[in-house]
Write a protein that binds this DNA or RNA. Structure first.
Length: 402
DNA sequence: TAGGCCATCTGGTCCT
DNA sequence: AGGACCAGATGGCCTA
């Protein structure tokens, strides 16, 4: 009966494959079970009926296959003939084919024969479609136990890995311009701020000059959330008091005696404060939404200049007051006074040399002391031990000393 | 209560 | 085979 498919000797259909095909054609969903077993178990009347119903199709399809393929293209790795079995059948997800599933199934080779018999023992027990592919091995108690142990070990490793990652992030938090033990930046904000910080420093080195503080803050805060922007601005001590007490009266430059920046007179344009980026009611300066114009992508072009705040865009009234660190929300709330002071002094200790400053490349802190930079703890240092500034910071500092 | 953030578990993939 | 890495799912915590 199978000989009709073997007109071409290259079409090496086996009885099992033919049977699977027949089963498929007759919508018999037992094709996933052991075909050999089923073939032998099927009553003669059933086989006869199957073949008689599908034989014309089999003949026609077999002829097509002989014409279209010489069987090689249809062979799969495991020797199955995709054409004979049907593409969609082979494309079905094969249960137990993944490593994890094989793990769950255990890795012993025992009892395979018994399992095959066991699997097929319920051939008449329901309509559930049988799946092809490697059979799931029986989960003995020992296998279950081994699988659990493996999973627990993997979980522990994953925990350790994530802890290491978090430690690295903590170290990164310490070297970005806004660090607080109590007001931790979120992971994503830490990464964004670090990126901006690197870009800002690189830009400063390229340009060979200090940016104005607002530009610097804008560079740092690009892409940050509003709370983080506020926090960073707060860290830079751009708060209401500074601006209110130092409001210029002539629209020109002013200094901020109460701020470390005042030690080294640094030009600020009052008009910047009342720029369109100030968001009334939010108590925040919209540093994030600022556009430097076409082509600006967060980094000023090499040799370029800072935004022209004297342009009409930045002209206007010199108020309203800005409270850059008053709009903290969520997790980034204003830190406790002690921490905040510590924070500020760390970053801008131009007036207080008790603690080394952060490596802000402008203003007194960066230009003044050359004191060891305590907060720039390299990632490989843990804790808050102060240490000498890393060479890059020294260079940057030296630059601003000049 | 919704939304953000986080830790953990889990399964998949890749590499050694 | 086992470990590293990754991403999705889930639940807890906190804040507005």
């Amino acid at each position: 009966m199978f000989q009709i498919l073997f007109k071409n000797p290259n079409l090496s259909l086996t009885k099992v494959q033919l049977f699977l095909f027949l089963v498929r054609k007759t919508r018999n969903q037992q094709s996933n079970c052991s075909a050999v077993v089923l073939l032998h178990r099927l009553p003669a009347t059933m086989l006869s009926r199957l073949f008689s119903e599908v034989l014309p199709d089999v003949q026609r399809l077999a002829a097509d296959w002989v014409d279209d393929n010489d069987s090689e293209d249809c062979k799969t790795k495991d020797g199955h003939d995709r054409c004979a079995l049907g593409e969609d059948e082979l494309d079905e997800p094969q249960e137990g084919s993944s490593r994890a599933e094989s793990e769950m199934a255990g890795d012993d080779d025992e009892d395979d024969e018994a399992e095959e018999e066991e699997e097929c023992g319920d051939e008449n027990s329901g309509d559930k479609p049988k799946k092809r592919g490697p059979k799931k091995r029986k989960m003995t108690a020992a296998r279950v136990e081994r699988s659990k142990v493996r999973r627990l070990k993997a979980n522990a490793r994953e925990r350790t890995r994530m802890h290491d990652l978090n430690s690295a992030l903590d170290n990164l938090r310490k070297v970005v311009p806004c660090y607080s033990k109590t007001q931790k930046l979120s992971k994503i904000e830490t990464l964004r701020l670090a990126k901006n910080y690197i870009l800002a420093l690189g830009e400063i080195l390229r340009n060979g000059k200090r940016p104005d503080v607002v530009t610097y803050v804008q560079m740092l805060c690009k892409g940050l959330s509003q709370p983080t922007t506020n926090l960073v601005a707060g860290c830079l001590q751009l708060n209401t008091r500074n601006f209110l007490t130092e409001q210029c009266t002539d629209g020109a430059r002013f200094h901020m005696p109460s701020s470390p920046f005042s030690v080294h007179p640094y030009p600020y344009r009052c008009s910047r404060i009342s720029s369109p980026h100030y968001q009334p009611g939010t108590g925040a300066l919209n540093l994030r939404g600022h556009s430097y114009g076409p082509g600006y992508d967060g980094v000023f072009p090499a040799g370029g200049t800072s935004p022209d705040y004297s342009s009409p865009d930045y002209e206007g009234q010199h108020s309203p007051p800005v409270c850059l660190n008053g709009g903290l929300s969520g997790r980034q709330q204003e830190p406790p006074e002690t921490d905040r002071n510590y924070h500020y002094s760390m970053h801008y200790s131009g007036l207080s040399t008790s603690r080394p400053s952060h490596s802000l490349p402008f203003g007194p802190s960066g230009a003044r002391s050359g004191v060891a930079h305590s907060e720039n703890i390299p990632p490989f240092h843990d804790g808050h031990l102060h240490h000498d500034r890393a060479p890059p910071y020294e260079d940057l500092n030296a630059f601003f000393h000049n």
